[in-house]
Design a protein around this nucleic acid. Structure first.
Lengths: 244, 244
DNA sequence: TCAAAAGTGTTAAGTTTACACCCATGA
DNA sequence: TCATGGGTGTAAACTTAACACTTTTGA
């Protein structure tokens, strides 16, 4: 940034004032918040963790989990903190979606919000925290109306996640450490919103080389049992070519 | 956003205070700025319009053009305003790159900055404004050291622009309205940083159908003269399949 | 007359898609 | 024994990449 808008800003300061107060203080400060689009995957369906707000503003309505950026934390850190407040999870895969800065986006005050999406294993979060926040997993095809510009945030996050998941191995964050190829395929079918040919899918998985078969068998999904696989991050980084 | 961080923020207010002051005021406000990565294209090379700062902070150093978000404008509008301040141009193609929010990114004050890239026709801008701002076109392969996290902003913008230019017809914003296929190819070679086969390139252009040959000839680039083409936006929107 | 950029098709290689049956097991 | 999900290969269609010569004209 710089302060060239001093020149055109009708509230500009004199040179003396700038020297006294620094070049920043002729400008306003704003609330900055973060909002989290939290993806989970279960039984072939993607869900979002949403709040049924039991606090103002917009009490009683549905929203993303969010919070304000504090003085002593980066925006990324704020997003992580807010996610941890709700889920108890640390070291979660998160990516910035973008910043939403319309003047009236929050009718209560001028707030600029930076949206992030997170991918979590839907079986591993702190249920008590989630309950305390009055948050629920909602199937992505059955979302309620969301407050403010949260619907736009969700759409952008879905697009971005889909795009990213097709070229980088981020989908594994939505699965348990060990998963069957049927689960993996079903995840990608949910992400893309379309069916995938089983043989072509398995061929691609095999060709990548870093999705490793373990000697463990999952017997819960079928009588015959399916081999459990794991993502080998080290092998991926040696030859990071991903395409699903 | 919501104010759940009231619960963990050590500076939280009592319920009474919240009701009096609203749920926002327990949180800090921050400076929010925008920074513009302004791309131009000339003679087969991409350049950025950069400031040699003749004002504090970081006087004498190189930076992106930026400015602070004001109370009465959206973040997008701030980015447009700042671009117009420097170039005199309106209705410029701009896209948000992302938000940079490290606590110490600006050593002078806590400032969160939203980066945008802009694509402009390097022949059409207000030279006087640019001169007044002490701004210069710098070849992207010969960039000076930039202040703060501006190098990261530039890298992210380049990546994003490259990605976007390959799937959407945004490159035309860097060219005159009428251009030769050699110019277009040279632009894409500059964007991708690698040579493109001429016959394959022209085949793809022809297949798309919305890059139209005009009856005008450019005689400046060769003795023989090359046909001038134009991008037909209407035709593109009828059948928006782009790939270069 | 020649240097310099404009313009033009075909073939091989690689990638993607479509497709159907047998296997192992628990109920 | 049979219903259920697990597991496997091949051929056709399509896409991408490689490649070289003729044209025009001003200097």
């Amino acid at each position: 940034m710089n302060q060239n808008n001093l020149i055109v800003n009708p509230n500009y300061l004199t040179m003396k004032e700038v020297q006294q107060k620094g070049c920043y203080s002729s400008n306003p400060t704003l609330y900055v918040s973060v909002d989290c689009i939290i993806f989970g995957f279960n039984e072939g369906e993607i869900s979002l963790l949403l709040l049924k707000r039991n606090f103002a503003p917009a009490m009683g309505e549905w929203s993303l989990m969010g919070g304000f950026v504090q003085k002593d934390e980066s925006v990324d850190e704020a997003a992580k903190r807010v996610l941890t407040e709700l889920t108890g999870l640390e070291n979660v895969y998160m990516e910035q979606v973008g910043t939403f800065g319309a003047v009236d986006r929050d009718p209560g005050e001028r707030v600029i919000s930076v949206a992030y999406y997170a991918l979590i294993n839907i079986n591993e979060y702190n249920r008590e925290l989630v309950q305390n926040h009055n948050a629920y997993w909602i199937n992505i095809h059955k979302l309620p109306s969301l407050i403010f510009d949260h619907p736009k945030m969700v759409n952008n996050a879905r697009e971005l996640m889909k795009q990213k998941a097709s070229i980088e191995p981020i989908g594994f964050n939505l699965l348990p450490r060990l998963f069957t190829l049927s689960q993996l395929q079903s995840l990608y079918e949910a992400i893309y919103g379309e069916p995938i040919d089983k043989r072509n899918f398995r061929k691609r998985v095999a060709d990548m080389g870093f999705i490793e078969k373990t000697d463990k068998i999952d017997k819960t999904g079928s009588k015959r049992g399916a081999a459990l696989y794991q993502f080998n991050s080290r092998a991926y980084h040696k030859d990071p070519k991903f395409k699903l």
